[in-house]
């Protein structure tokens, strides 16, 4: 009974946080609602006894990435008014088409995961400690080794790109002088 209550509460908070994040004018408030949503998701993971994944979600996303987001927002000193009256970047038709497309994808995934026989199979396949340190590490370093290593290459490319951009700006400024 308690578990069900906790589940519905966290699920509600996660979804409400996500919705509130999108409808905010103020970017700082958006970041905060995203953190709220992530915290609720971490609770859901922990309820599935995936403690490790829940902790990682908080450490990596809430503790590191979103701090960077907030840092950038503060550095540029963005307030709500920066996002008003800019005029549409995409046409109205494109917006509606994209919304319908994403919603359709959402419905298909939910249907596939929750309302078919596959859902039961998925639940049966996962071991009780599927979210622990060892099961996650084993999957990462055996079954998903190549995608995992490729991600690190991706990150390296991003780092090199960031360094390049920072350098270019500096030389450009020196030329100005």
């Amino acid at each position: 009974m308690l578990e069900v209550l906790i589940f519905y509460f966290s699920a509600l908070v996660a979804i409400a946080g996500a919705v509130l994040m999108i409808v905010q004018r103020n970017p700082v408030a958006s970041v905060l609602y995203l953190i709220l949503s992530l915290a609720a998701q971490a609770v859901l993971y922990i309820q599935l006894s995936a403690l490790f994944i829940g902790a990682l979600l908080i450490i990596v996303y809430a503790g590191a990435i979103l701090v960077l987001f907030l840092f950038v927002i503060m550095l540029l000193n963005l307030r709500g008014e920066h996002f008003e009256d800019k005029g549409p970047r995409l046409g109205r038709a494109t917006k509606y088409a994209l919304s319908v497309l994403f919603f359709a994808e959402f419905v298909v995934i939910i249907k596939e995961l929750a309302f078919t026989e596959r859902a039961g199979m998925l639940a049966a396949e996962t071991a009780a400690d599927f979210g622990g340190v060892e099961p996650v590490a084993e999957l990462l370093y055996t079954k998903y080794l190549y995608p995992f290593e490729l991600t690190s290459v991706l990150l390296l490319v991003a780092v090199v790109g960031a360094v390049l951009m920072a350098k270019r700006e500096k030389t450009a400024r020196q030329e100005d002088i």
Partner: peptide
């Protein structure tokens, strides 16, 4: 918790907010 250390790092990383 069997991930005690990670729990500590998770909650202390939120203090910066």
């Amino acid at each position: 918790l069997n991930i005690g250390i990670l729990f500590i790092f998770a909650v202390t990383s939120l203090g910066v907010y």
